[in-house]
Design a protein around this nucleic acid. Structure first.
Length: 927
RNA sequence: GCCCGGGUGGUGGAAUUGGUAGACACGCAGGACUUAAAAUCCUGUGGAUAGUAAUAUCUGUACGGGUUCAAGUCCCGUCCUGGGUACCA
């Protein structure tokens, strides 16, 4: 009895999970007397497959941090919830006829059961579910705040739309021009504003709102009768089924995230995300600084605006290219070229997304017959159209500089256009050179300047002459916010006269109407369009048939945890103020651009509107790596039931089959188990190498169909949750992605048993001595505590597990079972292995949970390696100090002293700057 | 193509940021206990050469150069590899 056996582990872990719940130990209060610490996991989408070993990796890490900070004396918020709206539940409903609400609840229950077994210290009383009306009431409410805001570019912040209306009433829009150049009304006075009818006013406001309706392209899949999200479209065909996808214009909600591009970019400097994560966001935002300038078209009233990042190359412009969709194409094409252009436009129209993606390198285009003039020297420039210029970026038109831009160069060569060289020997005639370091030639007033410097000069000149101006462009587009789905938040608006109006707060939530029809309506609208009574709920008012994307609920859930049951606000300002930013946010890197950007955006808008004091939600972000599966293969001879070992398969024609990883040891197949695995294989024959069957292997994603999934329940049944927790941490650095393998889990289990045995004798009785610890024992303990503390602060949990192992090995060899050593060790271990720590803590005579303990302090004097220094004197003067370790053997010290005298002779009396001494030997001397 | 990471024993991975490379663990080998097995414990374990041995010497962090008293770590080039992005002017 009382051995750390598998049976005993189950009892211990169950006992403590019950105790924790019974004593409500994880309940967190908004207690403002303590310093707060907010540790957040990215809440999961509760998929039907349940948890696999990859999920808990980040959760375990955050749980360790939460428990650590707690025993460090912080008031720790460590909540969990579910991102419960989403496509898979709807898909499941279509296939199995089970309502998403029901399957989602089932899945959540299963997740909670699995999470409960791992011993996390979540405060479940703060759980949020995004599909809960009491939650999405506030998602809708925040959406309406965004809808009722506009972005004041002068102040670079969001303001209430009511303030904009006041401005329009007082002064028209002279100071706040319409940004959409295609909108029919561009400027108006205050009297004009007052004269507009209601609908016109609403249309104007729609051009300014941060959440706005507009016709935008969607990915329409005719075969599936539905609209697809970007990530459901792979290389121009649908992810499911591989059907063609085309662009279709639909009236949809978007969030004007582009207005925040610059603040989202600047905000990155203040927050602690990994550089790669910041890079991804920066690339996504895609800021480029350059100039916008106008080219006059010959014999025409039109001008073409282009955007360029390289105004310094203005004298190298040999032609211009505009997008085929550009509005001026029809206007400027000459009669002589009309046939060519029409032919090309037809060709472009016929090209699907797939073709374009596949043939990026293909050079196509047509000449319009029109010419523009270089704004500086009047040089005649032919105007072409080509699909390599995108209508959606910049102005949809470019000035082509073939000697400096690769695509322009290829285009010029292909159509035999002349190429002006402005960079001398930097251009070899064969390929473009995008350098900024060349000295400009053939460039009029820029001649002789280094290109890098000429950029600013050119912009200044453009501005002086009124030809152009400095301009910043972003790759990022506004965020499409409509989904043609059922299982999401309905938009809390009503349409009157085709314009949306915000619902009143008292009317929220606008609940998702009950339905059992989840099929798309077929005309591009989602399933809600089938509910005509709900849509047309009143004779002159309609609802939106779209729902919000899952990003909506996830864009603010971290705020709701602070005050989850509030019915009068999304959270109390005091709670928001106290908990403030998330101190550490742990989750997968796959959310780099979508979720994290939207959460940052919503935070910034709420900040601007005065609801939050902070404008970045996450102070620090840690991306845990993916745990991938380690698959095994067998090779079946084609058309037979004979399997050939991996090393010999090249001699045969074989098919590769996944085999269950549980019947393979390392790479060697358990042949008997294999025969029993599936009836088909009962009579299988084998071609062996060295009398073994060796399997092939590959690292791939964990998936049931690959037979490489490891369910945490299995590990917990075998070894207990504490071993699982420590093993997942021991596997490698948190941020690295790594294949799952249970090789080595025994080592972690043995470690825990050693801890157990440290204070139990062979018969299972407690053996703790009250004796004073020795200096050596204290050193072992303090060294460990200090290292662990640093490791946790650095999120380096793999090394901290090693550190514990070293410590227990050393204490074991010292035969140390003293209370003064063991107790602090158990406290330090408790964040990693809470169950065993609680049990030992109780056995050591404590009535209160170990969560109420205080993280042990260490005494530096026991850790210092170098405690005294020996002066080296040269010519009677002390010239350098040498440091010695306190516990260095005496003989070694004598050796060094001797050596240092030799060194002095060797260095001819020059004082060494530094001497490297390792284990009593002088390794190196720095003069 | 462009922008970031990464490449260390049979395996997962350490290395105080330029200072004994391979901590810790797995695996493997040998030993102890046992009638036996399991479990547990102990010892060894990058490679090569020499030696009965303790040990000694050389070599070694993808490859080729370089800086430095000293390089896994810094610089240049090459090759693999993971991620992001894609005609963004």
């Amino acid at each position: 009895m009382a051995d750390y056996s598998k049976e005993e582990i189950k009892n211990i872990e169950q006992k403590w999970r019950n105790e924790w719940e019974k004593r409500a130990l994880y309940k967190v209060t908004n207690d403002t007397s303590k310093t707060k610490y907010y540790v957040l996991d990215m809440f999961p989408y509760p998929s039907g497959a349940g948890l696999h070993v990859g999920h808990p990796l980040g959760y375990i890490a955050s749980d360790i941090v939460a428990r650590f900070k707690r025993i460090k004396g912080f008031n720790v918020l460590h909540p969990m919830g579910f991102d419960a709206f989403g496509l898979p539940a709807e898909q499941y409903a279509l296939e199995h006829g089970i309502h998403p609400a029901i399957s989602t609840q089932d899945n959540i229950n299963n997740f909670k059961r699995q999470l409960g077994k791992i011993g996390f210290c979540y405060d479940w009383s703060r759980e949020v579910q995004t599909c809960d009306p009491s939650y999405y009431k506030w998602t809708q409410w925040i959406f309406l705040q965004i809808f009722n805001s506009w972005f004041n570019r002068k102040k670079e912040k969001a303001q209430r739309i009511s303030e904009l209306i006041t401005i329009f009433e007082e002064e028209g829009n002279a100071n706040h021009p319409i940004q959409n150049s295609k909108f029919r009304i561009q400027s108006f006075s205050s009297t004009e504003w007052k004269g507009f009818d209601e609908k016109t006013q609403q249309e104007i406001l729609m051009q300014c709102r941060l959440a706005y309706l507009a016709y935008t392209d969607v990915n329409w899949c005719e075969a599936l009768g539905t609209v697809l999200a970007n990530d459901e479209v792979i290389n121009g065909v649908s992810y499911r089924g591989g059907f063609p996808v085309v662009k279709k214009q639909m009236r949809q909600w978007s969030l004007r995230i582009t207005e925040y591009a610059d603040r989202l970019l600047k905000g990155l400097d203040e927050i602690d995300f990994s550089e790669s994560m910041k890079d991804i966001q920066r690339n996504w935002i895609g800021k480029s600084v350059g100039a916008e300038l106008e080219f006059k078209i010959q014999n025409s009233k039109f001008k073409i605006k282009v955007f360029t990042t390289r105004p310094d190359t203005i004298f190298g412009v040999d032609f211009m290219v505009i997008a085929p969709e550009h509005e001026l194409v029809k206007e400027i094409t000459t009669d002589a070229q009309r046939e060519d252009i029409d032919k090309y436009l037809k060709y472009v129209e016929s090209r699907s997304e797939v073709d374009r993606m596949a043939e990026v390198k293909k050079i196509t285009g047509a000449f319009t017959g029109a010419y523009a003039n270089n704004p500086f020297n009047g040089k005649q420039i032919p105007i072409w159209i080509s699909e390599y210029v995108l209508a959606g970026y910049g102005t949809g038109a470019i000035m082509a500089v073939p000697c400096g831009d690769e695509r322009d160069h290829k285009f010029a060569k292909h159509f035999k256009l002349p190429i002006t060289n402005i960079i001398g020997s930097h251009y070899n005639g064969e390929e473009a050179n995008p350098t900024k370091d060349a000295i400009l030639e053939n460039s009029d007033f820029l001649n002789g300047m280094v290109m890098r410097d000429a950029i600013g000069v050119a912009i200044q000149k453009l501005e002086e002459e009124g030809i152009g101006k400095r301009q910043v462009n972003y790759k990022m587009r506004d965020a499409g916010w409509s989904r043609q789905r059922y299982w999401g938040e309905p938009f809390p608006v009503v349409f009157k006269d085709d314009m949306p109006y915000a619902m009143k707060e008292s009317e929220l939530p606008l609940e998702l109407p009950p339905s059992d029809n989840f099929k798309p309506s077929g005309n591009g609208e989602g399933p809600l369009a089938n509910l005509t009574d709900w849509i047309n709920f009143s004779p002159n008012a309609k609802r939106d048939s779209n729902t919000m994307p899952t990003h909506a609920g996830a864009a603010w859930y971290f705020l709701r945890y602070m005050d989850p049951h509030n019915t009068s606000a999304f959270a109390d300002p005091k709670a928001l103020d106290y908990w403030n930013q998330v101190d550490v946010y742990i989750g997968g890197a796959e959310h780099a651009v979508a979720h994290l950007l939207y959460a940052r955006l919503w935070t910034k808008v709420l900040h601007d509107l005065g609801y939050l004091k902070f404008d970045e939600p996450f102070k620090k972000l840690i991306n845990q790596g993916k745990i991938t599966g380690d698959s095994r293969f067998v090779y079946r001879l084609r058309g037979s039931n004979k399997f050939v070992s991996s090393g010999l398969k090249s001699n045969h024609e074989t098919d590769e089959l996944h085999v269950d990883i549980s019947i393979v040891h390392g790479l060697e197949l358990d042949i008997d188990a294999f025969k029993k695995w599936k009836p088909d294989f009962a009579n299988a024959e084998f071609i062996l190498e060295e009398s073994k069957y060796i399997c092939g292997s590959a690292i791939e994603k964990m998936s049931k169909s690959y037979f490489n999934v490891v369910n945490p329940d299995e590990i917990i049944n075998n070894y207990g949750a504490d071993t699982l927790r420590m093993y997942e941490m021991f596997l490698g650095p948190l941020e690295a992605s790594k294949p799952w393998s249970t090789q080595g889990i025994d080592g972690v289990f043995k470690f825990l048993r050693k801890v157990w045995n440290l204070i139990h004798d062979q018969t299972g009785n407690l053996k703790v001595s009250e004796a004073e610890p020795t200096r050596q024992e204290l050193k072992v303990l303090y060294k460990t505590i200090k290292k662990i503390e640093q490791d946790i602060e650095n999120f380096s949990f793999n090394t901290s597990v090693s550190e514990f192992m070293i410590c227990v090995n050393e204490l074991g060899s010292l035969k140390c079972n003293k209370r003064a050593i063991v107790e602090p060790l158990v406290i330090a271990l408790s964040p990693f292995a809470p169950h065993i720590a609680e049990e030992l803590w109780e056995k050591l005579g404590h009535k209160e949970s170990i969560l109420t303990a205080t993280y042990p302090k260490y005494d530096d004097q026991y850790l210092v390696e170098s405690t005294f220094s020996y002066p080296i004197s040269i010519n009677g003067k002390v010239r350098a100090q040498m440091e010695f370790a306190l516990d260095m053997p005496k003989e070694d010290i004598e050796k060094i002293v001797l050596a240092s005298e030799i060194v002095q002779k060797w260095t001819e009396g020059k004082p060494p700057k530094k001497m490297i001494v390792v284990q009593g030997r002088i390794v190196n001397v720095v003069l």
